[in-house]
Amino acid sequence: MRAPNLTLPQRAPTALPRTWSARAGAALAALAVVVFPPVAGALDWPYYLSLATKTLALVLAASALNLVLGYGGMVSFGHATYYGLGAYTVAILAREGVRQAWVVWPTSVLVAALAALAIGAVCLRTRGLYFIMITLAFAQMVYYGVVSFKQYGGQDGLRAPRTEFGFHLGDVELYYLALGLVWVSLWFLWRLVHARFGVALQAVRDNEVRAAAVGYPVYRIQLVAFVISGALTGLAGALMAHHTQYVSPAMLSWPQSGHFMFMVILGGVGRFWAGVLGAVAMTVLEELFHAATVFWQFYVGLALLAVVLLAPRGLAGLWERRR
């Protein structure tokens, strides 16, 4: 047996549920995420509320990565950079005394987007393995750059007090904020992948030479997708900074990038719900193994190896009919 390539869906999947049972399931899931905080509050589960918020931030990051990895076919091994920069912007602005939400959040997204623009502009001139390696190289540069800035914590990381919205941003409020951001972002991504841009992006992924030959500006399309993905990953980072109220260079490290990639693959690369399924499944998997054994990472690794070798279409692929 050999590992098949990670197969992409035949067509951009029409992911809105069509059968009645599926619609009922989706509605139930939507209801569950909306009423989760009061339920968690009633049951006194602060830990699970916090875990859910964290998962939402990961969902956002993984979905953003899926745009370049799944829809764009660009294997970026440095997405932790944008995630970390988004988070660090929150912390650094707070340290400099800027905590107004309407300043901090847009700045986070902007910083991540600009970084993605600069890095993407260089990296997208290479292909294949070299693209993987050069995105990694830039990620390492940013990582070490941040580590050496002692006034912003260096290796120790930095506290990141939550921004001010004019109301108390407690854990429940943060959960709903995260839910809202994820919902809006997913909606945006949904529209995007089904609009002209998404079609063009997938055309470039499927056949770059052909795409150029019918008139698509390949480089610009890839770069714009890269920047959008970077910006959304930055948003995820800002969200995570609000959740942990602390940022550290580990958010920028390459294992973090690998972690995001794993979530996308686990979810099913190139399927719309890959980020959601992957991030949720990864969190569940980690919690599950963590509760069961000290050596939980071994089993996470085993599970992921099994996914890569046996179910290359990921979790989202489970719903697809076998060809």
């Binding site: 399931g25 699970y48 569940v284 599950l288 979790l315 489970l318 719903w319």
Partner: peptide, 22 residues
């Protein structure tokens, strides 16, 4: 079947929550 696969995933999730609460 697809249903079985979906059910499996749900069960796994439920187990996690339960183990945490226990």
């Amino acid at each position: 079947s697809r249903t079985v696969r979906v059910v499996l995933v749900v069960v796994v999730f439920a187990c996690t929550l339960a183990s945490g609460l226990a």
